[in-house]
């Protein structure tokens, strides 16, 4: 709907975040937490459509699985807070961050 000009991206993100039951993410201001990105493994983030953001939260385009959250907690050392990102927005962000690694 964003591509077709029916919705502005911030509005789409807000609706998406509502449907996932979490606050929206502002990727333009977000920086990748490279330490956790590499510690957990790029494959994990790519498969789950998630990315760890510097400062604590995990941006996600999918609802987090309870067991997955517990596993992530064991890797990160704290309970991750999730913020919602649109699936189409997460992909270029992943590519951009991968180039920098």
């Amino acid at each position: 709907m964003v591509d077709m000009g029916l919705l502005h991206e911030p509005v789409a993100r807000w609706i998406w975040a509502e449907s996932l039951g979490m606050p929206p993410c502002e990727l333009l201001e977000a920086q990748l937490n490279q330490e956790f990105y590499l510690k957990v493994g790029p494959s994990f983030w790519w498969l789950h459509r998630m990315l760890p953001i510097l400062g604590g939260p995990v941006a996600t385009a999918t609802p987090p699985h309870l067991q997955m959250t517990a596993w992530l907690e064991s890797k990160m050392g704290y309970v991750p807070a999730f913020v919602a990102e649109l699936p189409r927005q997460a992909r270029p962000f992943v590519r951009q961050t991968r180039r920098g690694i």
Binding site: S19, L47, H65, M68
Partner: peptide, 22 residues
């Protein structure tokens, strides 16, 4: 095996709204 980008997209599209743990 590691899914291709297309396969992964198909999984997420089909299971939209379901929490998934790979």
């Amino acid at each position: 095996q590691m899914p291709s980008a297309k396969v992964l997209r198909e999984i997420h599209d089909r299971l939209t709204g379901y929490p998934i743990f790979f």
